[in-house]
Write a protein that binds this DNA or RNA. Structure first.
Lengths: 229, 229
DNA sequence: GTCGCTAGTATTGTCGACAATCTTCGCCAG
DNA sequence: CTGGCGAAGATTGTCGACAATACTAGCGAC
C-alpha cells in the first residue's frame, strides 16, 4: 500500500503541482507502480483527467500532460469571470449574517497578510474568500465548473500577483465585493466582481506579455513532444 | 457489429433522447450486449458520462441515469445564461460580414418556421443560431461547457416553448441579438442576450411550476430507485 | 551519407476470469 | 404475520494475459 487516496486525485495533484511537466508522457505502467495501483485504476483516472482537460489522449499513443496555451488561459479566465459574477450576484441575494461575518474575517486576515508582505498566505486567503462566496451562492453546477477551471489554469496564476501595486488594489476590490454582499445588493456585487476580475484579466494579459517578452524562445524550451524523462 | 459509433456517444444519445428513464439502472452487461461492445468499453463510457453529469455511479452498486431536479435545472440555466452572455459579447467583437449574413439567414428561416407554426423546426433553428454565435465567439472552453450543460438539461427544454405567445417574443429577441452582433456592439449584445435568457429563465420557471401544479405527485411517479425495466 | 525496409521493443487496447460486494429470496423463530 | 438470518444469485471491481498498434534501431541499397 503505497500511501492513500485514489489514484485519480493523486495524479491530478501531481499534475497541477507541476510534478509532471506539460507535454510529458504519462505511461500507464509507470504510473501504476508510482501510485501502487493497478493499470485498470490508472486507466480510469486518465479518462477522467482527460475529461477535465488536464491531459490529452491520442488513440494507441497514450496520454500526456496538456499544455495550456496563453490563448486558452485567457479563455478560461473569461469564463471564470462570467461564472464568478453570477455567483457573486447569487451570494448577495442569499448571504446570511453569519456568512457576512466570515467574509469580513477573511478580508481582515488578508489585510494582515498584506501588511506582513506574506504573498503566499494572501493568495491562499484570496482563494478561500472566493470559495466562501461560491458556497454562499450555492450553485453546485457553477462551483464544479469553477473547480475544474482552477486546476487547468493554475500554472498561469503564479505570475499574476507579481505585478507592482497589484496586491493593494486587489484587497480594495475584495473589500468592495464583501461590502456589496453585506448590503445584499446584487447589481453592485456583480459590478464589483466584474471590476475585480477585469483587473485580474488585465494582469494575466500583462503576465503573459511579460513572459513572452522575457523569453520569446519559450516554445523551444518547452519539453519536446517526444521527451522521455 | 451492432451498428457503428463508439459506445459512449451512443449511450449519451440514448440517455438524452429519453430512451432510458431517469433513475433507471444501467447494467454493464446489458449495455454490453445492447451496443455490441465489450464491458471494458462500456465501463469507460460510464466514467465519462459520470463526469458529464448524465449518470451517477455508486461504488459497487452500479450506474443509473441521473435525475435532474427542477432546482438543478434552474442552476444550469443560470450558468448557461452567464456563458451565453459572454459568448454573445465576444461574437459582437469578432463577427465578420459572412458570419452576420449567416445569422440573418437563420433568423429568416426561423421567421418562416414560425409563420408555418413548425415548432420543432423553429426549435432546431433556435439551437442552430445559438451554436453559430458560439462558433463566432470562438471560446472553446465555454463552448464545451455549454454542450455538456445542454445534454443535461434537455429534458426540461421541451416545456419551455409551449407558453402562449412565447415563440413570437423569442423571435424578436433573437432579431435584437443578431442586430447587436451586426453592429459590433458588445454591450448591446450582452444586454439583448441577457434579456432573452432572462425570459427563457422565467419561462422555465413557469414550466416547472405548471408541471408541479399539474401533477404534484410526480415524485411518486418517477421510476422507483429499484426499477427493473 | 541518406533513404527505405525490417525486425524488435515498448505501450496501449481488449478480453476473459475471478474476487468482492450488494441484493434477493427462502427459512425459521417468536 | 413479522422480522432476523443465511445462502444463492446478480452485479461490479480488479487482475493478468494477450492482441493491436506505434516507436526504435539496425541493416542494406543507392
Amino acid at each position: 500500500m503505497r500511501s492513500i487516496g485514489d489514484p485519480c486525485d493523486r495524479l491530478r495533484e501531481a499534475i497541477v503541482s507541476g510534478e509532471f511537466q506539460p507535454n510529458e508522457r504519462l505511461v500507464e505502467a509507470d504510473l501504476s507502480v508510482r501510485f501502487g495501483a493497478g493499470r485498470t485504476a490508472i486507466r480510469a483516472a486518465l479518462t477522467v483527467l482527460d475529461q477535465e482537460g488536464l491531459i490529452v489522449r491520442e488513440p494507441n499513443r497514450g496520454a500526456r500532460v496538456r499544455l495550456i496555451s496563453a490563448r486558452e488561459a485567457l479563455e478560461i479566465e473569461h469564463v471564470r469571470n462570467a461564472l464568478e459574477r453570477l455567483l457573486a450576484r447569487c451570494a448577495a441575494l442569499e448571504a446570511g449574517s453569519d456568512d457576512v461575518a466570515e467574509l469580513r474575517a477573511i478580508v481582515a486576515a488578508m489585510t494582515e497578510r498584506l501588511r506582513e508582505s506574506d504573498t503566499l498566505g494572501y493568495m491562499q486567503l484570496n482563494a478561500q474568500l472566493h470559495r466562501r462566496i461560491w458556497k454562499i451562492s450555492d450553485n453546485q453546477v457553477a462551483i464544479k465548473m469553477l473547480n475544474t477551471l482552477k486546476s487547468q489554469s493554475i500554472r498561469f496564476q503564479y505570475g499574476t500577483i507579481l505585478r507592482p501595486g497589484r496586491p493593494k488594489q486587489s484587497l480594495r476590490e475584495h473589500e468592495e465585493i464583501v461590502a456589496a454582499i453585506a448590503a445584499h445588493d446584487p447589481d453592485a456585487c456583480d459590478a464589483a466582481m466584474a471590476q475585480h476580475l477585469g483587473h485580474v484579466l488585465e494582469t494575466l494579459q500583462w503576465a503573459i506579455d511579460a513572459q513572452a517578452r522575457q523569453r520569446p524562445w519559450s516554445a523551444l524550451r518547452e519539453p519536446a513532444l517526444g521527451a522521455r524523462s
